[in-house]
Nucleic acid binder design. Sequence first.
DNA 1: GACGACCTACCTATTGGAAGGTAGCTCATC
DNA 2: GATGAGCTACCTTCCAATAGGTAGGTCGTC
Lengths: 194, 194
Amino acid sequence: MSTVSSTADDILACALTLIVAGGYNGFSYADIADVVGIRKPSIHHHFASKVDLVRTLVARYREEAQAGLSALERNVADPAEQLKSYIAYWEACIKDATAPFCVCALLASELPILPEEVALEVRAHFRHLASWLASVMERGKRQGRLHLVGTARVEAEGFMATVHGAMLSARAYGDPKMFGTVTRPLLDRLSTRH
Amino acid sequence: MSTVSSTADDILACALTLIVAGGYNGFSYADIADVVGIRKPSIHHHFASKVDLVRTLVARYREEAQAGLSALERNVADPAEQLKSYIAYWEACIKDATAPFCVCALLASELPILPEEVALEVRAHFRHLASWLASVMERGKRQGRLHLVGTARVEAEGFMATVHGAMLSARAYGDPKMFGTVTRPLLDRLSTRH
DNA sequence: GACGACCTACCTATTGGAAGGTAGCTCATC
DNA sequence: GATGAGCTACCTTCCAATAGGTAGGTCGTC
């Protein structure tokens, strides 16, 4: 059942890897065709245009991200542990190098030259992620499980920014451990009473 | 004196703007030629290749950055104020939109597909900036002017990552104020005794 | 008359994409 | 149960535009 129409998924998976490596203009149809094992123009059968391909890709990524956060809400009760799990997820992604960067974070850095349709999806991801983090912060504060200095919103934005910066540093240093080096103090500061 | 051989500088300045907007593959010689008012092949008279152009660009950027940090060391004594000035510099850059992103931060996100010569310069910038920040942290700690939780090195990496993440968020939200929203608590936490 | 700065005229490879064809499957109809 | 319509999934061929880059020339200045 998963083999049915898997080519479109293969194309998306491949494009994801390529975008994570070098952004919107860092890959071409030829690159995808080589990896997927298909002729270059055949990609148009599955996606009308490059914009369409990337928009679909980001939209699906966002769906999966939302599903992942929902699962986290269900499986982990403690707000502090939720943040820890979120960080652990990315730590694992970066370590095994499958997708060592958030697609939306990477695309956001190129926002000025991004097709508007893609840019919309990217901005939506930032808003959604920040909202979720703010809700976790808020709940953690109420339950006395998280120690906030500023408002939940500000703490959430700071958290998100630091995580993105940590991904960048890990990449710049070529050292996956750098992600943990930066994010661990962040978690400690939020969960420790001082 | 500054008009002498200004074309090379114009090309570099233009390329900087374009890279800041969309990364290494986000601009072409044609783009530069249009802005500078020169024919496309004439760029080769000043820079042998695109790699050469960008490598020169990043090398010069690094020189200016180092000069800027040195000036900061001379003009501002207090470590906490040095960090504040560094943030204020970027806050101004982002607000007036001249160069609302660090070139090296943007290029770092594309590191896997960057020509090695450029990648080397980018990595060097990260190391140098982190070293400077660590030295400021260390001095601030000794002088009792900065309150560190972890080691100077770890605090420096966290600081740098958060600043980069703040640039990204400001871009993603299309809101320059977001940079200050994220970085102000960072400065407060370091300079406040609590 | 050498040189720097820039030009025109090209070149080759690659870009995303258009056009039209074909192999094989499903399924209703006769 | 053969026929044919229509589907998906891919193919080949082609294209205009753009990529970065080369060769060789012009022209003003020292």
